[in-house]
Simulated scan of single mutants.
Amino acid sequence: MSPEPPGHPEPPAPRSRSGTIGRHSARTGSEPVTARSPLRLRLLLSGIFLPVFVAAAALFALWARASGPGGSPHRAVLITIAALCAIIAFLAVVDLLVVVRRLRRERGTGR
């Protein structure tokens, strides 16, 4: 039970406890006490490279579709590159969602 009245929003989670599980191991003393993840940089990089890798996946897929048998590079290579670009784009989407959730939690505007 929380001592706060019902409907009162929780204070934002501090950066040290903003992970889904919390601290994974005790501090060893060698890392800075105020170390923070560069969330805004991750947001910027994911936002920039998401459309780049989506476009690359689409272009390689179209190239693979248009390439004939015995073409160079081989169709299987183009399909593999397109799949890798799509996987990286998916990871960028996941990272965007995680970063946005953590930033909202820090600001106290999370659900």
Rank of each mutant, 00 (worst) to 15 (best):
M1S: 14
G7I: 05
H8I: 09
E10D: 15
P12Q: 02
A13H: 05
G19A: 12
T20F: 05
T20G: 10
I21N: 02
G22Y: 00
G22I: 00
H24I: 13
H24P: 15
R27T: 10
T28R: 15
G29T: 00
S30K: 10
S30A: 08
S30Y: 07
E31G: 15
V33I: 10
T34G: 03
R36L: 13
R36V: 13
R40C: 09
L41H: 11
L41A: 12
L41I: 13
L44S: 12
S46N: 02
S46W: 00
G47P: 10
I48F: 13
F49E: 06
L50N: 04
V52E: 00
F53G: 04
F53I: 04
F53K: 07
V54S: 05
A55K: 05
A56Q: 08
L59N: 06
L59V: 06
A61T: 09
A61V: 06
L62A: 11
L62V: 10
W63I: 08
A64L: 04
A64M: 03
R65K: 09
S67F: 09
S67Q: 11
P69Y: 04
G70A: 02
G70Y: 01
H74E: 09
H74D: 08
A76G: 14
T80N: 04
I81Q: 02
I81L: 08
A83Q: 08
L84D: 11
I87S: 01
I87M: 02
I88K: 10
A89W: 03
A89Q: 04
F90K: 05
F90S: 09
A92V: 01
V93I: 07
V93Y: 00
D95R: 12
D95Q: 11
V99F: 07
V100D: 03
V100C: 05
V100M: 03
R102E: 13
R102H: 14
R102G: 12
R102D: 13
R105P: 12
R105V: 15
R107L: 12
R107D: 09
T109Q: 07
T109I: 09
G110V: 14
G110M: 11
R111M: 13
